[in-house]
Design a protein around this nucleic acid. Structure first.
Length: 213
DNA sequence: GTACAGATAAACT
DNA sequence: GTTTATCTGTACA
């Protein structure tokens, strides 16, 4: 399966977020493929979005957001974890989609080994659904670090492949932010047991897709 | 099952 | 010096 091309990412951020659900995030390693179905994402939309890192303007960290769509934006957070984003839209509009959770599909044992190295319990204690049900966890499972920041997702060992689209999705506010909580820009596959933990998961009513910004 | 404290360092002010 | 798009272990129900 070939990677999604540049034009996929060069669209409205909410549309890219929605269409990433169901796709397969793939990491090629010397030991083989590690991959999972994307089941949860969040949109971060430009300097006018107070929760977007670009709200602080163009800095050393946010530089990738101002670059071409289809490249990775990875940052280090809470002194311990990494978060993986795909850059959307054209240059000059700094927006991206945070990938928050995967349904593990390939290389589950390699995921387990990488995740276990940070824990005390050992590799045996991690259930399949706990391997990548969070933005920090999936970066650990796939071995994504700052070395992958600015990687070209359209032609590299780290890429997104089209797969089965979800039957239904749910929109909620974004997780872990203190501003911009009025925007329902988190989107996940309805009924998936692989999404991250959030009080908003109980909001079962389907929200219509937010208006394009 | 839920609730909370604490870990830990880059980027920014 | 402050903040942070998180996770884990422990405590308790």
């Amino acid at each position: 399966m070939s990677a999604l091309g540049r034009s996929f990412y060069d669209r409205d951020t909410l549309a890219v977020a929605r269409d990433l659900l169901g796709c397969r995030l793939v990491r090629e390693t010397p030991g083989g493929r590690i991959a999972g179905r994307i089941v949860e994402v969040e949109a971060y939309h430009g300097e006018e979005d107070p929760a977007c890192h670009a709200a602080a303007g163009r800095t050393r960290r946010t530089e990738p957001l101002y670059g071409l769509p289809g490249f990775a934006y990875v940052y280090f957070i809470y002194g311990m974890y990494h978060c993986f984003n795909v850059v959307t839209r054209g240059q000059g509009h700094p927006s991206a989609v945070l990938v928050r959770a995967l349904e593990p599909l390939e290389g589950l044992e390699r995921m387990r080994e990488r995740r276990a190295s940070r824990r005390r319990g050992g590799a045996g204690g991690i259930a399949d659904r706990e391997l990548a049900n969070g933005p920090g966890k999936l970066c650990d499972a796939l071995g994504i670090t700052l070395a992958e920041n600015r990687a070209d997702l359209t032609g590299s060992p780290l890429r997104v492949e089209p797969d089965e689209p979800p039957e239904a999705v749910v929109w909620t506010p974004r997780v872990g932010i203190s501003v911009g909580t009025d925007r329902f820009w988190r989107c996940f596959v309805k009924g998936s047991p692989h999404v991250s933990r959030s009080p908003w998961n109980r909001v079962l009513a389907d929200r219509p897709r937010p208006a394009t910004v």
